[in-house]
C-alpha cells in the first residue's frame, strides 16, 4: 500500500490509469468498446501495481482550479516557447555571436515532485535558459545572456510566470 494511505494510493492510481488509457486510445486511434475494455485491463495492470510505492501521480489535482491553472500554464508556455525559438534564431543567424553565458541560481517554491518535474522541463524550453540542477529549493540555470546574478530578478525572469500556475495544478 502507498505510504501515505489508501486514499492517496487510489488518487494516484486512478490518475495514472486515466493518463495511460488516453495514450492507449490515441495509439489505437479508436474508441470502440472492444478496444476500450482491453485498454482498461492492460493499463490497469500497469497502473495499479506501479502506484503501490510513492508516486508523483498522487500530485495530480482534478478540479476547476487545477484545470484553469493548467490552461493558464499552457498558454504562457506556448508563448514563451515561440519566443525561445525566435531568440535562438536571432543568435544563430547573427554575423557575430555576441552573448555572455553564465550559470545562475534561482529559487523554487514548489514542493510536489510532479510540479518540480514540469517546471524544470518548462524552464529548459523557454528563452535563453537551460536547467543544470534542481536540488531542494535551488534551481541552477545556464543563461545564454547573463545580465545580473541577483537571485530574485533571475527567478522572476526564468520561472516567475509558471510557478503560481503549476502550484494550482499539482498539490
Amino acid at each position: 500500500m502507498h505510504p501515505d494511505g489508501r486514499g492517496t494510493y487510489w488518487r494516484g492510481a486512478i490518475g495514472l490509469w486515466a493518463v495511460l488509457l488516453v495514450i492507449w486510445a490515441a495509439v489505437n486511434g479508436s474508441l470502440a468498446p472492444v478496444v476500450m475494455v482491453a485498454g482498461l485491463a492492460v493499463t490497469g495492470a500497469i497502473a495499479l501495481p506501479l502506484c503501490r510505492t510513492a508516486t508523483p501521480w498522487t500530485d495530480l489535482r482534478l478540479g476547476p482550479r487545477a484545470i484553469l491553472g493548467f490552461l493558464r500554464y499552457t498558454a504562457i508556455f506556448l508563448r514563451e516557447m515561440v519566443r525561445a525559438n525566435l531568440g535562438v534564431m536571432r543568435v544563430v543567424y547573427a554575423p557575430r555571436i555576441d552573448i555572455r553565458p553564465g550559470i545562475v541560481p534561482t529559487r523554487v517554491e514548489l514542493t510536489a515532485p510532479m510540479a518540480r518535474f514540469v517546471l524544470a522541463n518548462t524552464v529548459s524550453l523557454t528563452p535563453g535558459s537551460l536547467v543544470l540542477e534542481l536540488k531542494d529549493e535551488s534551481l541552477s540555470v545556464h543563461l545564454l545572456d547573463r545580465t545580473t546574478t541577483d537571485v530574485d530578478i533571475n527567478t522572476a525572469a526564468v520561472s516567475g510566470a509558471f510557478q503560481p500556475a503549476l502550484a494550482r495544478t499539482f498539490g
Binding site: N85, G128, L130
Partner: peptide, 18 residues
Amino acid sequence: RMPDAFTRIQAGTKATTL
C-alpha cells in the same frame, strides 16, 4: 556555430522542439 557545449545544448533543445 555556438561556442561551447552548454550553448549548443540550448540551441538544440528549443529549436528542435518547435
